[in-house]
């Protein structure tokens, strides 16, 4: 079958196996009517066959798709994993995604994968290192990649720049794009005491290809990016401000734990749609 050729715009959801029956079942067309596109976790489908692959392709043939990775480890000290990149490229060739993203982070060193999005010191050395590797990845994939700001819980004494300045300079040096996770901006701003408005102001608007929204856990003196709850009110407020600055960027709800019924996520996505419309109307007025 031909891949869906709809434009990558509007509002999407992370594709989770629990929801395949809703999406691909007899009522799937109705259930997914408010979902313009889906995002997959790339690692879940690299070198995978059987029912997961069959379901993936069925969804892809009805919707545009974004690929979102968690193991590129763009800031790691080890050389880039050639086998992983080949698997990623094979998947890119198969599903023809609108966006191929991963995170500004590292996930392990010396061959170990800690399976967490670990923070990087924000220094010139890191910038040089990451930019060179982004260029390498883009050469292999033959396309721009998109990097997401991860939530962080520590900063380094070695830091010499803000994360937004780091990302802005990275896009310039490596000619890559950005996935702005608005919840992560809020979480990191709270944990480190900066103003999220400064973050949004520092991000180059022409580089933002996609927006993530997700829930978090507030622990009083710090917030953890858990992806296990609805989007919190302050994050919705920040999203509204992001839409005012960045415009109608494709936006999705990202839920990875405590996964609710599919219809609940579609309702939450409608909330994003309404807020974005209000923000765009306000910006135009």
């Amino acid at each position: 079958m031909t891949r869906c050729q709809n434009p990558f715009q509007g509002f999407g959801l992370g594709l989770r196996p629990q929801h395949f029956p809703d999406i691909l079942g007899p009522a799937g067309a109705e259930a997914t009517a408010g979902v313009d596109w889906f995002e997959i976790i790339s690692e879940n489908f690299i070198a995978v066959g059987g029912m997961p692959r069959r379901n993936l392709m069925a969804v892809r043939n009805s919707r545009p798709m974004a690929m979102h990775g968690v193991s590129l480890s763009i800031g790691a000290p080890d050389p880039l994993d050639a086998a992983y990149l080949k698997g990623l490229k094979d998947l890119v060739d198969l599903i023809e995604p609108a966006v191929v993203s991963d995170h500004l982070c590292w996930t392990g060193a010396h061959g170990v994968n800690l399976h967490d999005l670990l923070p990087l010191p924000l220094t010139e050395e890191t910038l040089d290192h990451v930019a060179a590797r982004v260029i390498q990845v883009q050469d292999v994939l033959g396309r721009r990649i998109v990097l997401e700001n991860a939530s962080t819980y520590v900063t380094f004494t070695a830091d010499t720049m803000s994360e937004w300045d780091f990302l802005a300079e990275l896009t310039r040096r490596a000619d890559c794009d950005l996935l702005l996770d608005v919840n992560n901006v809020y979480v990191s701003a709270f944990n480190h005491g900066f103003d999220p408005a400064d973050y949004l102001a520092g991000i180059p608007a022409d580089r933002v290809r996609q927006i993530h929204l997700a829930g978090h856990e507030h622990n009083g003196d710090h917030i953890v990016d858990t992806h296990d709850a609805p989007v919190a009110d302050p994050v919705w407020d920040l999203y509204r401000r992001a839409v005012c600055k960045f415009g109608a960027v494709p936006t999705m709800i990202e839920r990875d734990a405590n996964i609710p019924p599919f219809a609940d996520l579609v309702d939450e996505l409608d909330q994003a749609r309404r807020l974005a419309a209000q923000a765009l109307d306000g910006a135009a007025a």
Binding site: Y153, V154, H222
Partner: peptide, 19 residues
């Protein structure tokens, strides 16, 4: 090497094993 000694470093400790 962490600002203020990294008061929330335990988030990473917990997340690694829990995940």
């Amino acid at each position: 090497h962490l600002t203020s000694g990294g008061p929330f470093l335990s988030v990473y400790d917990h997340a690694y094993v829990a995940r």
